[in-house]
Amino acid sequence: VTVHVDGVEYDFDNPEEALKFAKKVAEDKNGTYEVHGNQIRVT
C-alpha cells in the first residue's frame, strides 16, 4: 500500500498501518485522505 503525501510516497506492507498513518497525517495538516485501491492520497 502506498500513501502519497505532498508528492512523497510512503510504502507500507500492512494496509492497517498505512491507513493509520494516512489518518494521522491528514489530521495533523487538517486535510483529508482518499483511498483508491492500494493507493491512499492525503490532501
Score class of each variant (00 low, 15 high):
residue 15 P to K: 14
residue 39 Q to C: 13
residue 37 G to F: 05
residue 1 V to A: 10
residue 27 E to K: 14
residue 20 K to Q: 13
residue 41 R to T: 15
residue 24 K to I: 08
residue 9 E to W: 11
residue 35 V to W: 14
residue 21 F to H: 03
residue 21 F to T: 01
residue 3 V to K: 00
residue 14 N to F: 07
residue 7 G to K: 04
residue 38 N to I: 04
residue 25 V to T: 10
residue 2 T to F: 06
residue 23 K to L: 07
residue 24 K to Q: 13
residue 26 A to V: 06
residue 10 Y to M: 04
residue 6 D to L: 06
residue 5 V to W: 06
residue 18 A to G: 10
residue 22 A to H: 01
residue 42 V to L: 04
residue 10 Y to T: 04
residue 1 V to C: 09
residue 1 V to Q: 04
residue 34 E to N: 06
residue 40 I to H: 01
residue 37 G to H: 05
residue 3 V to I: 03
residue 21 F to V: 02
residue 8 V to T: 10
residue 40 I to G: 00
residue 41 R to F: 15
residue 16 E to P: 04
residue 39 Q to A: 10
residue 21 F to W: 10
residue 4 H to R: 07
residue 18 A to E: 00
residue 9 E to Q: 14
residue 4 H to M: 11
residue 10 Y to I: 07
residue 19 L to M: 09
residue 26 A to H: 02
residue 30 N to K: 11
residue 42 V to C: 04
residue 35 V to Q: 07
residue 10 Y to L: 04
residue 32 T to D: 06
residue 37 G to Y: 05
residue 33 Y to Q: 02
residue 7 G to H: 05
residue 8 V to E: 12
residue 6 D to I: 03
residue 3 V to T: 01
residue 42 V to F: 05
residue 40 I to E: 01
residue 17 E to G: 04
residue 28 D to G: 09
residue 36 H to A: 10
residue 6 D to R: 04
residue 15 P to H: 15
residue 27 E to P: 02
residue 41 R to W: 15
residue 20 K to R: 13
residue 10 Y to R: 03
residue 35 V to N: 04
residue 20 K to G: 08
residue 13 D to F: 08
residue 3 V to W: 02
residue 31 G to N: 03
residue 28 D to R: 09
residue 9 E to K: 13
residue 29 K to F: 15
residue 2 T to P: 01
residue 2 T to A: 05
residue 7 G to Q: 05
residue 34 E to I: 12
residue 7 G to M: 05
residue 13 D to C: 11
residue 14 N to Q: 07
residue 20 K to Y: 10
residue 26 A to C: 13
residue 2 T to G: 03
residue 25 V to Y: 07
residue 37 G to A: 06
residue 43 T to Y: 15
residue 19 L to C: 11
residue 33 Y to F: 12
residue 10 Y to N: 03
residue 34 E to H: 11
residue 13 D to M: 09
residue 17 E to P: 03
residue 38 N to H: 08
residue 20 K to V: 12
residue 18 A to H: 00
residue 38 N to G: 06
residue 7 G to S: 05
residue 25 V to G: 02
residue 22 A to M: 02
residue 22 A to Y: 02
residue 17 E to M: 07
residue 15 P to A: 14
residue 40 I to N: 01
residue 1 V to Y: 15
residue 13 D to P: 12
residue 19 L to P: 00
residue 31 G to Y: 11
residue 21 F to K: 01
residue 40 I to L: 03
residue 13 D to Q: 11
residue 2 T to K: 10
residue 29 K to Q: 11
residue 1 V to I: 13
residue 41 R to M: 15
residue 33 Y to P: 02
residue 42 V to A: 01
residue 22 A to V: 04
residue 10 Y to Q: 03
residue 40 I to K: 00
residue 11 D to Y: 15
residue 17 E to F: 04
residue 33 Y to E: 01
residue 18 A to F: 00
residue 23 K to N: 06
residue 33 Y to K: 01
residue 29 K to N: 13
residue 3 V to N: 00
residue 18 A to N: 00
residue 31 G to P: 02
residue 22 A to I: 02
residue 28 D to K: 10
residue 33 Y to D: 01
residue 28 D to C: 12
residue 19 L to G: 03
residue 8 V to P: 01
residue 11 D to F: 15
residue 33 Y to M: 08
residue 22 A to G: 03
residue 43 T to P: 04
residue 1 V to M: 14
residue 42 V to N: 02
residue 4 H to T: 11
residue 30 N to L: 07
residue 27 E to A: 14
residue 37 G to I: 04
residue 4 H to N: 09
residue 14 N to H: 07
residue 27 E to Y: 13
residue 40 I to S: 00
residue 26 A to M: 04
residue 33 Y to L: 11
residue 13 D to N: 11
residue 38 N to A: 06
residue 5 V to Y: 09
residue 20 K to C: 08
residue 31 G to D: 03
residue 4 H to Y: 14
residue 5 V to L: 08
residue 35 V to F: 09
residue 35 V to P: 03
residue 12 F to G: 00
residue 30 N to W: 06
residue 40 I to R: 00
residue 38 N to M: 05
residue 39 Q to I: 15
residue 32 T to Y: 13
residue 36 H to W: 11
residue 43 T to K: 11
residue 37 G to V: 04
residue 9 E to C: 12
residue 24 K to E: 11
residue 10 Y to S: 03
residue 31 G to S: 06
residue 2 T to R: 09
residue 7 G to E: 06
residue 30 N to F: 08
residue 13 D to E: 12
residue 6 D to C: 07
residue 25 V to L: 11
residue 9 E to Y: 11
residue 26 A to E: 02
residue 27 E to F: 13
residue 38 N to F: 06
residue 29 K to I: 15
residue 23 K to E: 09
residue 14 N to E: 09
residue 7 G to A: 05
residue 7 G to D: 08
residue 28 D to I: 12
residue 34 E to G: 04
residue 8 V to M: 12
residue 1 V to R: 04
residue 30 N to E: 07
residue 41 R to Q: 14
residue 9 E to M: 14
residue 21 F to S: 01
residue 6 D to M: 10
residue 40 I to F: 04
residue 5 V to K: 02
residue 31 G to H: 04
residue 31 G to E: 03
residue 16 E to I: 11
residue 11 D to G: 13
residue 18 A to I: 00
residue 19 L to W: 07
residue 17 E to D: 13
residue 37 G to Q: 06
residue 4 H to A: 07
residue 28 D to T: 10
residue 6 D to F: 08
residue 16 E to H: 10
residue 39 Q to T: 14
residue 30 N to V: 05
residue 41 R to A: 09
residue 26 A to P: 00
residue 43 T to V: 15
residue 9 E to H: 12
residue 2 T to Y: 06
residue 34 E to L: 08
residue 24 K to H: 09
residue 27 E to I: 12
residue 33 Y to H: 03
residue 28 D to F: 11
residue 4 H to P: 01
residue 31 G to K: 04
residue 12 F to D: 00
residue 42 V to E: 02
residue 24 K to C: 12
residue 34 E to R: 07
residue 33 Y to N: 01
residue 42 V to Q: 01
residue 23 K to A: 11
residue 7 G to F: 05
residue 25 V to C: 12
residue 11 D to M: 15
residue 32 T to G: 08
residue 3 V to R: 00
residue 11 D to L: 15
residue 5 V to R: 02
residue 32 T to P: 02
residue 12 F to V: 01
residue 39 Q to L: 11
residue 37 G to K: 05
residue 11 D to E: 14
residue 36 H to G: 05
residue 26 A to S: 08
residue 4 H to F: 14
residue 16 E to A: 10
residue 3 V to H: 00
residue 39 Q to Y: 13
residue 4 H to W: 14
residue 30 N to D: 08
residue 41 R to D: 08
residue 35 V to L: 07
residue 22 A to S: 03
residue 35 V to Y: 08
residue 42 V to K: 00
residue 41 R to I: 15
residue 21 F to G: 00
residue 18 A to P: 00
residue 12 F to K: 00
residue 8 V to I: 13
